[in-house]
C-alpha cells in the first residue's frame, strides 16, 4: 500500500520534470536555428511573417504592462480589504465577505475575457474620450484591469490570513500606548505580517503573468513594444495560444517558437516563486 501511495505522490515530481523537459528540449530545437542573442535583444517578434524575427521583448513588455495594470488595481484594493477584514470587521462580516470574495477567483477566465472585451472596454472608451484618449477596442488596459479584479481575492485572502496570524498581544500593546486601530494596523500589524503580504502579492503577480484567456480575448494579439497600457499588445501567453489556435504543423520553427516563449514564461514564474520564497524567509517574523 505504501508503494502505491508513494507512486501517487511522485506524480507531482514527474509533472515538474515533464514540463521542464518538454519546454527545454523543444526550445533547444528552436535555439539551434535562432540565436539566443537575437531572442533576447531583438525588439521585433514576427515568427509568422515571411521574414521572421524572433525577439521576445515585445511579448515581455505586453506581459509586464498587463501585469502592472493588474497589480495597480489588485494591490491597493486587496490590501484595503485585508486590513478592513482583519482589523475592523466583526467575525460575522469577515466570515461572509471572505468566501464570497473568493468567488471572484473561481470565475472561468474566458468569461472574464468576454467581460473585459464587451463591458469594460466600451465603458473605458466612453470615460476616456472626453480626455482626448481614443482607446482601441483591443487593449491591455481593460485586460489588465479585469485581471486585477480577478486576483483581488488571492491578495486579500492570503494577506488577511497573515495579518490574523499576528499575535493579539502585539495589538494590545499598541492599543495600550493609545494608538488607534488604523495606526496599529499600519505600524504594527502590517509590518509584522509583511512576509505573508509580500508572498500574497507575488502569488497574485505570478497568476497575472500566467493568465492567458483574458489577454487573448481582450488584449489584441499584436506583438509590439508596449509603452503605455492603452495599446494593443500580445503577452507571452497570448502568443502561445494564438499559434496553437492556428494550424501550424508541429516541429516547424514557427511552432517551436511557442516553446521558446514558454521557456521565458517558465523562467519568469519560477523566478518569482523563488523571490517570494526568499523574501518570506528573509523578512519572516516568527512569534
Amino acid at each position: 500500500m505504501e508503494g502505491l501511495l508513494f507512486g501517487a505522490a511522485i506524480v507531482a515530481v514527474a509533472i515538474v520534470i515533464g514540463i521542464i523537459y518538454v519546454v527545454v528540449s523543444e526550445s533547444a530545437k528552436f535555439f539551434a536555428q535562432v540565436s539566443p542573442i537575437e531572442f533576447v535583444t531583438s525588439t521585433t517578434w514576427t515568427p509568422l511573417f515571411d521574414n521572421p524575427q524572433y525577439g521576445i521583448a515585445p511579448l515581455l513588455t505586453g506581459t509586464f504592462m498587463s501585469t502592472l495594470v493588474a497589480l495597480a488595481v489588485a494591490v491597493p484594493l486587496g490590501l484595503l480589504v485585508a486590513i478592513y477584514l482583519s482589523e475592523f470587521a466583526g467575525a460575522r462580516t469577515r466570515e461572509t465577505i471572505k468566501p464570497t470574495l473568493e468567488l471572484l477567483a473561481a470565475v472561468p477566465t474566458v468569461v472574464y475575457g468576454y467581460f473585459a472585451l464587451l463591458f469594460v472596454t466600451p465603458l473605458l472608451q466612453s470615460w476616456l474620450r472626453p480626455f482626448g484618449i481614443e482607446l482601441p477596442s483591443f487593449n491591455l488596459l481593460s485586460a489588465g484591469l479585469v485581471m486585477g479584479l480577478m486576483i483581488i481575492p488571492y491578495i486579500a485572502s492570503l494577506s488577511e490570513d497573515a495579518m490574523r496570524a499576528v499575535p493579539r498581544s502585539m495589538r494590545e500593546g499598541s492599543y495600550a500606548m493609545g494608538a488607534t486601530r488604523l495606526e496599529t494596523a499600519f505600524r504594527v500589524v502590517v509590518p509584522a505580517a509583511i512576509s505573508g503580504v509580500v508572498g500574497a502579492v507575488i502569488l497574485g503577480m505570478s497568476r497575472a503573468i500566467g493568465e492567458t484567456m483574458i489577454v487573448v480575448v481582450a488584449g489584441g494579439q499584436l506583438p509590439q513594444m508596449v509603452t503605455h497600457p492603452a495599446m494593443q499588445g500580445a503577452t507571452v501567453t497570448a502568443f502561445i495560444a494564438q499559434v496553437a489556435l492556428g494550424d501550424l504543423p508541429f516541429g516547424t520553427l514557427e511552432y517551436n517558437s511557442i516553446f521558446a516563449a514558454g521557456l521565458a514564461l517558465l523562467v519568469l514564474t519560477l523566478l518569482f516563486n523563488f523571490v517570494a520564497f526568499w523574501l518570506q524567509r528573509r523578512y519572516r517574523e516568527a512569534y
Binding site: V16, Y21, R207, I240, A244, G262
Partner: peptide
C-alpha cells in the same frame, strides 16, 4: 522535500505550460 517543493511550485505554474507539456508528451 522534492515532492513537497514540486507540489508547492506546481500550484503557481501557468496553466498554459501544462498545455505545452501535454502537446509534447
Amino acid at each position: 522535500s522534492a515532492i513537497e517543493i514540486a507540489v508547492n511550485n506546481l500550484a503557481g505554474v501557468p496553466s498554459i505550460l501544462f498545455g505545452l507539456m501535454a502537446v509534447g508528451i
